[in-house]
């Protein structure tokens, strides 16, 4: 997805001189070409995420459109107060783009895992929270929200799904409707595992790329069914239940992960691989 981020931003920057990119010493080499083309709009500020967010807000106050990029926990959890006050409270809109979603960097240990970012950023007034699942979705959503005047958070993963779905900002997508009384709700790249696990099961699948603003209408359309949220992060389950429905959750435990490995290993351990998801959904549907 980072390649797509670069491609889309370079295209946008070719038409909009207000774009300024700030990097926390991450993905810097990837954007070498951008730096060469627009040296006064590319800044590797170093490893100081708090200040990077404040600086971005300061640039925004002067009419620039800053994009701030670093690894997920560092550019969300570490600098939460700067996002809350300097960007949201001051209404100096910036776009935060993270990489390394959830267990992308499983092998680096819990310091590099991040599953609370979507949940906590959803709580900030005015903040848009977007989790594209594929390169194509990232491209579309980034273009849609560029220059919107709202602060936005995009969560990128190195393990996108390969599905081609009609998505739109703020709208959910019906992936599968079997008329079932069981509805699987998900967001982001994990959709790939869910489709692989459930495409022949008698369940509905609805999919979100935007956790805020959240498409409550789509949840309402399926409110006669029972929901199971399957997500490798926190935030989606809260968004669904905020619509006034109850929903089961199949995803992360309330504990730090005490192992390493690769994202696939972790998903298997947490029953978020296709086999584990199939078991969970079958059990859920069987309870109906």
């Amino acid at each position: 997805m980072r390649q797509q981020f670069k491609k889309t931003i370079m295209d946008l920057a070719g038409h909009d001189e207000q774009i300024v990119l700030l990097f926390g010493d991450v993905s810097v080499y990837l954007f070498k070409e951008f730096k060469e083309q627009a040296p006064d709009r590319f800044y590797n500020l170093g490893i100081c995420e708090n200040t990077m967010v404040s600086v971005a807000a300061g640039l925004s106050s002067q009419g620039f459109l800053p994009y701030v990029h670093s690894i997920t926990p560092f550019i969300t959890e570490r600098c939460l107060e700067q996002i809350k006050l300097d960007i949201c409270y001051n209404r100096f809109p910036c776009t935060i783009i993270s990489c390394g979603a959830t267990f992308d960097y499983a092998y680096d240990g819990a310091s590099h895992h991040c599953h609370n970012d979507l949940a906590i950023l959803r709580l900030l007034p005015g903040m848009e929270v977007i989790q594209p699942g594929s390169r194509k979705e990232l491209d579309l959503l980034l273009r849609t929200r560029h220059g919107s005047g709202s602060p936005a958070y995009f969560r990128l993963s190195d393990y996108p799904h390969e599905l081609d779905l009609p998505v739109a900002f703020g709208r959910g997508t019906v992936v599968l409707d079997t008329g079932s009384q069981a509805t699987v709700v998900t967001a982001g790249p994990i959709l790939g595992n869910i489709v692989e696990a459930c495409s022949d099961l008698p369940v509905n699948i609805i999919y979100f790329t935007t956790l805020k603003p959240f498409d409550a209408e789509l949840i309402a359309r399926y409110s006669h069914t029972r929901f199971i949220v399957i997500h490798d992060a926190f935030g989606l389950h809260e968004a669904v239940t905020s619509c006034g429905v109850t929903a089961s959750y199949h995803g992360l435990p309330d504990t730090f992960l005490d192992c390493y490995g690769r994202v696939g290993d972790i998903r298997q351990r947490l029953a978020l691989d296709p086999a584990g998801i199939r078991n969970a959904v079958t059990a859920f549907a069987g309870e109906l």
């Binding site: 200040t51 404040s54 600086v55 807000a57 620039f64 100096f92």
Partner: peptide, 10 residues
């Protein structure tokens, strides 16, 4: 101060 740095950079 971080905001001010961003404004000065702008």
């Amino acid at each position: 101060i971080g905001l001010a740095v961003g404004m000065a950079l702008a």
